[in-house]
Structure formats: structure tokens, C-alpha cells
Design a protein around this nucleic acid. Structure first.
Length: 345
DNA sequence: AAGTTCTTATTAC
DNA sequence: CTAACGGTAATAAGAACTT
């Protein structure tokens, strides 16, 4: 979905259209501590984008419309949209509230055993119908990428947005990828890109000059994946299986603090929320990790693995608080964030 | 020496 | 003058520790 959260807000409030809209944390007159979730294209003209600190966004365009995240609203829209998408193939994978993959490689809906593959033209046709149906039913624009695998489909969509549709057939993959920036490749983030730029690798074409062993020596396992991806190779199946492996919660304070009252009340709430989710899902845990971020963004974790899996709130409270206490003892800096995560078993 | 646990780093949405 | 920087989750790598 195009600029999803902000677009849903525009739909609900047509008077916002044509104006910069920023969905995310409260800017608090420029003192807010959160980040931008989504900005519409008007706001992006000012340099505002997802994950930008909200204080910076406020600097860049104080007159923008700043809205809090109304997750229930986007959740509802997302559910409606996913129900529509699912109708186009039985092989469906939801990635997030606003992203999904469909495997359209077979002829008839639901006929996984049919050996006859559908044509790219038919896929394009389905995509147009899907975009149209989403727009007519939900009044929201979307972008679809079509390719021989998930990697290319995703990158095609990225290039085509907003309100676009781009098909990259197998014989076009090379020409599509080579001129793109290394950071356009999913899996290459700022850190990896920085290391590559340091050795004059900026485009995917240049990335392809590095051998698999060179990439492996630079980035380990990830390097091997990068080698494949740079060549458009990706074997990941479209599949719905998503097993939760950990559950956690964290909280950033309004102001850095050392007040034990504030810290422990917040932490108590975090523990109970995590435990609640654990119980709702009938999960047990064995490993507990406490996260502590100090003033200056210095972030540390402490974890403890129990002898036996449990879902007992008392044990969780005791062990988690014990870990947090260690932080308070060994580090006297003001605290910015505390969090708790448990590994499911 | 092998297996487990702990910690940090990186990425994505 | 540069920083500014949420919340949730996965995965990798290497160090530290147990057995």
C-alpha cells in the first residue's frame, strides 16, 4: 500500500489531501522523542520520511499536519485489503499491515498442481484487477511489482510506487538491477552500504564485480545472500508460515530518568503486558532478556536462561527485575528506555 | 571440544 | 555544531560460559 498510514488518514479526512501529513509520535513543539511512522508525498517534499526523528520532521515542516498512530483504523483497513488480495491466489503471504506476496505462477486459483504456468500478461491483468478492486472497495491506492521471485517483485514495487504497476520478466532482471543503488537491495542497510561505498561499490552493477568469497569474508552468511540477490536470485517461497519466536515490549521515557518509582512502575507494566500476551498465546518461555538504553543512546542487554520453561508471572517478575537491578547498580547514567523480551519455547 | 548462553550488531517494517 | 533516533521482531556472529 502506498504511504499506508498517512493515506488512510487522508481517506478519513479529505480536507488533508494536498497538504503535508505526518503520522507518528507527538512532535511536542519540536521536543518529541519519537519518530515518523509514515509521511505522505507532500510531506516527503520537505525531506520527511519514515523513521525520521519527529523533532527533525517538525523542524523541516512545522506547519505539517501531525497525527498520532491510529493503529485500530489501519488494522481494519489492512484486514479488508488482505481479504481482497487473498482471493487472487491461494499462495499468499502477509508481510506486514500493508505488504503481501502472491504466487501467481499457476494457471487457476487454488490449483497448485497444475503444471501450466500463467503468462506474464495474465499476471499483469490480475494485478490491474487487484489494484482496481482495492481502490474501489477501500479507496486506497496501491503498488504492485511482478517478477520471477519475491526479491524482484518487491524491488519492482519499490520502484513503481506510488500507485504503480511494474512487471520485470526474467530476461529483464539484469537490466533492471544493475543501475540500482546497492541500498535498493533488500538486506543491504546503511551499515553494509557504508562499508561497500568505502571500497567504491555504489551500484548493483559494481556489487556484481565482488566474488562470493569476497562478500562472504566481508559480511559472513549475509554476504553470500547478497551475492545471489545482486544477480536477481532468490528462492524464497511465498509462504504463510510465521512462527513467533519471541515476545517483548519496550518503553522510552519522556525524559531520561533515574527515578526508581518511575522506572519500576513502568517496568512492572511492561512485564505484565508481556506476560498477558504470553498467556493469550499459551506460550512458555525459558530465556528472559532485559534491555536498557542510557542517555546518549548507549544500549545494553542482560539475559537469563531458566532451567525449565515456564509461564509463571511471579518468576518472570523476579528474574526480570533482578536483571534490571543489575543495570541500575553497575551503570549510574540516566535511563532513556527499558524493555523486556522473552524467548518462546 | 562441544554445546549452551550471553551480548552486540544489523536489518526490516 | 552535530544530533536528532519508537517499538517489535528476526537473525548472525563471536565471546563467554558450562559440561
Amino acid at each position: 500500500m502506498d504511504y499506508f498510514f498517512a493515506q488512510v488518514e487522508e481517506r478519513e479526512n479529505p480536507q488533508f489531501r494536498g497538504k503535508p501529513v505526518v503520522v507518528g509520535a507527538d512532535p511536542k513543539g519540536g521536543k518529541g522523542r519519537g519518530v515518523v511512522s509514515t509521511a505522505n508525498y507532500e510531506a516527503r517534499k520537505y525531506g520527511i520520511h519514515s523513521a525520521l526523528p519527529i523533532s527533525k520532521a517538525y523542524q523541516l515542516c512545522p506547519k505539517a499536519i501531525f497525527l498520532p498512530v491510529n493503529m485500530e483504523l489501519y488494522q481494519k483497513a489492512s484486514e479488508n485489503i488482505m481479504e481482497i488480495i487473498k482471493k487472487y491466489s491461494k499462495i499468499f503471504e502477509q508481510v506486514s499491515l500493508d505488504e503481501a506476496y502472491l504466487d501467481l505462477s499457476y494457471n487457476f486459483y487454488g490449483r497448485r498442481n497444475c503444471t501450466m504456468r500463467i503468462s506474464w500478461e495474465k499476471a499483469e491483468n490480475l494485478a490491474q484487477k487487484l489494484k482496481k478492486e482495492i481502490f474501489e472497495k477501500e479507496k486506497l491506492t496501491s503498488t504492485i511489482g511482478i517478477g520471477p521471485n519475491k526479491l524482484i517483485a518487491k524491488m519492482a514495487a519499490e520502484k513503481a510506487k506510488p500507485n504503480g504497476l511494474l512487471i520485470i520478466k526474467p530476461n529483464q532482471v539484469r537490466k533492471f538491477l544493475e543501475p540500482l543503488d546497492i541500498e535498493d537491495l533488500p538486506g543491504i542497510g546503511p551499515k553494509t552500504a557504508e562499508k561497500l561505498r568505502a571500497i567504491k561499490i555504489n551500484k548493483i552493477k559494481e556489487l556484481k564485480t565482488l566474488s562470493e568469497s569476497k562478500l562472504k569474508s566481508l559480511f559472513g552468511i549475509t554476504g553470500e545472500t547478497i551475492y545471489q540477490k545482486a544477480r536477481g536470485i532468490d528462492e524464497e517461497p511465498v509462504s504463510p508460515e510465521k512462527v513467533i519466536k519471541s515476545i517483548g515490549k519496550e518503553h522510552t521515557f519522556e525524559k531520561d530518568t533515574r527515578d526508581p518509582e518511575i522506572i519500576f512502575n513502568t517496568f512492572e507494566k511492561i512485564i505484565e503486558d508481556v506476560h498477558q500476551e504470553l498467556i493469550e498465546n499459551k506460550f512458555s518461555f525459558k530465556t528472559i532478556t532485559v534491555i536498557c538504553r542510557f542517555r546518549g543512546f548507549e544500549t545494553h542487554t542482560k539475559s537469563k536462561t531458566l532451567k525449565e520453561p515456564t509461564n509463571d508471572l511471579k518468576i518472570l517478575k523476579k528474574e526480570a527485575k533482578n536483571l534490571l537491578l543489575k543495570f541500575l547498580i553497575e551503570n549510574l547514567k540516566l535511563i532513556r528506555l527499558i524493555g523486556l523480551r522473552v524467548k518462546i519455547c
